[in-house]
Design a binder for these strands. Sequence first.
RNA 1: GGCGGCGUGGCCAAGUGGCUAAGGCGAAGGUCUGCAAAACCUUUAUUCAUCGGUUCGAAUCCGAUCGCCGCCUCCA
Length: 502
Amino acid sequence: MNLIEKYPVELYNTLSRKKELFKPITEGHIGIYLCGPTVYSDPHLGHARGNIGFDVMNRYFQYLGYKVRFVRNVTDVGHLEDEVQGAGEDRISKKARLEKLEPMEIVQKYINSYRKYMDMLKILQPSIEPTASGHIIEQINIVKNILEHGFAYEVNGSIYFDVMKYMESGKRYGELSGKIVEDLMSGSRNLEGTEEKKNPVDFAIWKKAKPEHIMKWDSPWGEGFPGWHVECTAMSAKYLGVPFDIHCGGMDLQFPHHESEIAQCNGAFGKSPVNYWMHNNMLTIDGQKMARSLGNFITLEELFNGSHEKLEQAYTPMTVRFFTLQTHYRTPIDFSNEALQAAEKGLNRLMNSLDVLNSLTYTKENELNQNLEKEINELIESCFLSLSDDINTPQTLASLFDLSKHINSFKDGKTDLGSISKETFNNLKKYFNDFVTVILGLEKENSGNNDKLDGVMKLVLDIRKQARENKDWPLSDKIRDELAKAGIQVKDGKEGTSYSIN
RNA sequence: GGCGGCGUGGCCAAGUGGCUAAGGCGAAGGUCUGCAAAACCUUUAUUCAUCGGUUCGAAUCCGAUCGCCGCCUCCA
């Protein structure tokens, strides 16, 4: 029995508001679309949160044996900054003007930055990373389709999606976000610059460009640029088809972004785009929303070098990754120094156990402890079951920590390694490694462990050993303490002394 | 105002109808140690915001109240 059959996956589908058994459209293959960044500023904590959770999903599916096509787009055009004051100015072009750079230079700069930090967080690179600006023709075609089907109208070179027409066709605008169109209409402010719309809930799918607008393209309706949400419809359709399996993104994108994607896709193709919608929850900093205006907006660069005033220290990418995985992706996560520091220690402990496990050598089977055998195998099993249960990473980590206890106990000689069978030991070794590194994507950082350092440390520890044998405590303690100051921890154990770099 | 979510030990956080409420951090005691550190062992929530209700049985379902957060405008 293969892993796909053995561990069926359940995912929480925002559309139905409950967990559903996951069934891919094409057996053995999964298409995933993740709403990527708008590249106009440095990547921040929020980007990390969403990406880490869905990265584990991606990794887990692949581990089970699925072929995954993971598409993460780059929005480098089309998001309006402010319909009133910006007068339709593109966020990218506004930033470009401020920094006196070409728009595509800005885009390139922040794409590079985004990729760099995602790599540091060990986010797997997407299979396809399409840009909105590279798919203008596809977007124009979507708009054409929607127009042809009567779900949009043109006003002065701009095209708007006609929500009322959509509703009249029997569809419900609001099925994903739970919004009620009447409420949206009464609650919506009648902004200047939106008077072209027949209805305030209508949204632009193509915008006419002002003469001074830098990023604009020819279209059947004159020069302009695509509306907010069309890019995802165009690119997901192109690379994943209609419908495709999983669309994920932050909760804040549920409305209007994803809601509009559903409407557009129905308008263009007559069917809904996605079988499973997944949304990660937001994050807060010390209980407050992260916002530039509150002074608690932390970029990944600041987090990793500790330069933000809210931070008591720098936190490594792996600490951030571990910390994030300790909370389920649908639960709000609160960043605080205290919590990050606790995560740092927890991660350290887990990684130490990994080292310990890999240093153990199985010799011979003695009297088997059936209970222990059972417990270890059940804990391995529970790692699979937890991830299959809507990617429950906190539960998975809990099981791994339980396994850590056993691993350490073998190392200490408290438990005889021969009391579990060779097969169980091999399972433990294989799956503990796989879950920690391959699936959760955690790895040792700044290990710096190399042959040269090992050689030096062997020498130093030998000298210390001799000093200890001669009861030369001042010397042995000096070696230990000075190494500690240099960030190297000496660990005395039954089997001799080892070291680790903090 | 409308929509959605959350409230579990000192802190973080799983569990969403039924064995003794996971796990991490912290704290206390012990083993080990020349002393430490590391590691290991033990202890640390009769209770799940509050009040009612449903049920043989609820942290888990329903209602009300209080508090927090998000979305409704670009946002992961």
